[in-house]
């Protein structure tokens, strides 16, 4: 399942960045914070085609980053890795939003307490803030994953619709319903994508509830 691989890679690779950006937006005050937030949330409001086209301009073979990466032997455009990048960019705002909210809900005085006990800020983050924000982190990752599975517009613009290379479940369904007699195949894929989505949502609900239960202290 190419779609699944693309979505998983997109989610996992963007996860550390998502956590970092979410924490920075939740906790730190720095100049240009509003601008950073705007850029992060931009793909949420832009038409996906625009995002895809911008990716193509930037990461295409002759794009600013694309040509640099090509020199290193990494080509993103019209490859599955490019599809993963498009999915990651589209899912990023959803991921950051959920995580930022849960980081903001963590009492900063708990981090201060960890500091007075001798934990440096990095350790305080990994031992206190991250575990406490875990339900939101999981929710954010799930949302990004779901977005990656369903991503269509940016992907098709950036990496086209090449069977076996960049054809995701969404673009495959689109292809099938364009050709005569493709309906049964489209329906099959539709059921598959519903199943994946359900599993993802149920799994994240379970994780989240377990996290909340632990915090409520049912020892």
């Amino acid at each position: 399942m190419l779609s699944l691989r693309i979505a998983i890679v997109a989610t996992l690779v963007s996860l550390p960045f998502g956590i970092f950006v979410a924490y920075a937006l939740a906790r730190w005050h720095f100049p240009g914070k509003t601008l950073v937030a705007a850029i992060v949330y931009l793909p949420l409001v832009l038409p996906p085609v625009v995002t895809g086209y911008m990716l193509l301009l930037a990461f295409g073979r002759r794009g600013i980053f694309g040509s640099l990466l090509a020199a290193l032997g990494i080509v993103l455009s019209f490859r599955w890795t490019g599809a993963a990048l498009a999915c990651a960019v589209m899912g990023f705002p959803l991921m950051v939003r959920a995580m930022r909210l849960s980081f903001e809900a963590v009492d900063p005085r708990l981090e201060q307490a960890a500091g007075t006990l001798g934990a440096n800020p990095l350790l305080a983050f990994f031992l206190v803030s991250l575990p406490l924000a875990m339900p939101g982190v999981i929710a954010g990752a799930t949302l990004a994953f779901a977005r990656a599975l369903g991503e269509f517009g940016a992907t098709i613009t950036f990496v086209s619709n090449i069977p076996g290379e960049t054809q995701t479940i969404a673009s495959a369904i689109y292809t099938f319903i364009q050709v005569p007699g493709g309906d049964p195949a489209a329906l099959r894929l539709t059921l598959v994508s519903i199943a994946i989505a359900l599993v993802a949502i149920v799994a994240s609900e379970i994780f989240q509830r377990r996290g909340e239960k632990r915090l409520a202290g049912s020892a």
Binding site: R109, N120, L127
Partner: peptide, 28 residues
């Protein structure tokens, strides 16, 4: 603060809710 070695007990205890009592005690 993490290098001062000054222990603080706050007005509301600020225990770590995701750790048990023993882990809280041993944190520092």
């Amino acid at each position: 603060s993490h290098k001062r070695r000054i222990g603080v007990v706050f007005q509301d205890s600020h225990l770590f809710p995701h750790f048990g009592v023993r882990q809280n005690l041993l944190f520092g």
